[in-house]
Design a protein around this nucleic acid. Structure first.
Lengths: 318, 318
DNA sequence: CTGAAAGCGCTTACAG
DNA sequence: CTGAAAGCGCTTACAG
């Protein structure tokens, strides 16, 4: 068994209460006593028992993180940001990486059982109401990370409008006049449109699925620039475009989103809009901690950044 | 506050002890009483308090997972396997994804503080002795996942010897006679060599870093096949080879390792040795649970599998 | 400045 | 088959 407060108290001929107070830095304990206690705690490698402490304080110093998947996405870096910020605050991070809705339920159940002080969500939860109702009922603080929530919870997210404006603005500054824009994310699309309108250019053609692009490019041969939903989608768009015999960037310029590690591979070299992934994670955990500590917080928008590589160029004059 | 055992007991006019027994399925409680208790617990959405329970049982039903990084690696899938198996056993998974050694220390400290019942390691720990000494002293079970340990802890790992044999065997069966083999992982290399020797072929040229390949390929122009340490390294090798004006697979065949998601992109199409990533994670957690429950376990080797794509072909006759 | 006491929610012998 | 009691390790009023 490991060392307990009682044991420390016995060895030093003080009461357990004094030990507890001293270890928690309470100023009511005399400096000398306190120093003696801390020294022995160090020497015996005392680690406070989280159960005893939690039973009393009703705080677990545990946070839960739920994400759909981390493979080929940027949630791996977000999770690192969350985890490191959590660790710095002496918080443990319980992670549930899963997409199947019944497994999400199981994860949230575990979060509740383990008494997490708060939850960070990187997936929407509309589909999994049952367990989240319990979360709400228990008033467990929640922060949305890289997703927004309609239910009024605070969130951290990249300023997608600005990102969209950056993407279309870049294409326009290169001389592109007719764009095709992915409409999966409405704020990014709004940003795209804002840049287009500001320059009095023709309405972009919208698409949801990259597989619709062959028909679109055929119908509108004046399209020379495409804004993608993500770098992952940009890969698929690249394949579709190339399968039509068109070259990137000579015939078609593509701007991705996210700035994933693979985007700088020489096979891809995507111009893209970088999201500050790790910072998003750090901010989310920071906000959750503040929420846990009863502070009022407001949602945050993070700055996107244009990264120019080789998938964009001025359009060929035809 | 949420519902407690006491509250249930009060409402049903039984003792807290009876409620506890019933909820834990103890056969000493009369069927009728037990049913009544369970029904009310369900109705009031009773969740046992993990602190009270843990204080008593000395079990947290928490496991820790430590990995260096998850970006562009396959540890994301391993983590999913671990997490899902943990959840199925009602275990929470505390993750520490970090590479800096002082942060590893911080993570392990948190694992200890949160009273994890066991730890799964996907990184070697020789460099971070201090905290792990504490883990050993507390006799917290550890399982190594996708790494082996010299200290005698159980591990799960792909059968790297077999994987190496598969990789070189594939090249040989295509007609390659002179190979270059990455020597980062000694078992994979041993497998490479085993296949080569079995066919009485010339000794492969060994390399550690892909940047040594230009010199090697120049010195030994008979090399037509390369076994890489990983798919990630295969990307770098591809770039190096192509920068020498050589084509893949016409001039040089490359076999990767891991079978990452990106390996099937049409820009890469790597022939590779697949590791059963999720199964490795599941096995690791399974083993940890058995260890926690006092069972004896033995290390496990998982089966690798050859996946043939477009980075390998018969060598050109020159 | 320090100690004795109660209590957080649970489990587990021990009576009956 | 059920209840009363003790105790896990900690914190926190309350005395003194």
């Amino acid at each position: 068994m490991s060392v307990t407060i009682k044991e420390l108290a016995r060895r030093l001929n003080v009461s357990p209460a004094t030990v507890s107070l001293a270890l928690n830095g309470d100023c009511r304990v005399a400096g000398e006593t306190s120093a003696k206690i801390k020294a022995l705690a160090d020497e015996l490698d005392y680690v406070p028992n989280n159960f005893g402490r939690g039973l009393q304080s009703r705080k677990s110093r545990l946070a839960g993180y739920l994400a759909g998947s981390v493979t080929g996405s940027f949630f791996d870096l977000i999770m690192q940001g969350i985890g490191e910020t959590a660790a710095a605050a002496d918080y443990g991070l319980l992670t549930g990486i899963t997409r199947a809705s019944e497994k999400i339920d199981a994860q949230v159940k575990i979060f509740i059982e383990k008494n997490v002080d708060g939850i960070i969500l990187s997936s929407t939860y509309s589909a999994h109401i049952e367990q989240f109702e319990k979360v709400e009922r228990r008033k467990i603080p929640m922060v949305f990370c890289s997703t927004q929530d309609s239910g009024g919870h605070p969130f951290v997210i990249t300023d997608n409008f600005k990102g969209g404006r950056l993407a279309a603005g870049h294409l326009i500054s290169l001389g592109h006049r007719q764009l095709a824009c992915c409409c999966i994310e409405k704020d990014r699309l709004a940003g795209n449109l804002d840049a287009v309108h500001q320059h009095n250019l023709p309405e972009p053609v919208l698409f949801f699925d990259e597989n619709d692009l062959p028909a679109i490019l055929k119908a509108s041969p004046s399209i020379t620039g495409i804004t993608a939903y993500s770098d992952t989608q940009a890969i698929k768009i690249k394949h579709v475009v190339e399968s039509l015999g068109l070259r990137i960037p000579e015939d078609i310029s593509i701007v991705g989103f996210d700035d994933m590690w693979f985007s700088e591979l020489q096979e891809l070299r995507f111009t893209t809009i970088a999201q500050p992934k790790k910072e998003i994670g750090q901010a989310a955990m920071q906000m959750l901690l503040e929420l846990i500590n009863g502070k009022n917080i407001t949602s945050r928008f993070m700055e996107p950044e244009l990264v120019v590589r080789k998938s964009t160029a001025p359009p060929l004059i035809r």
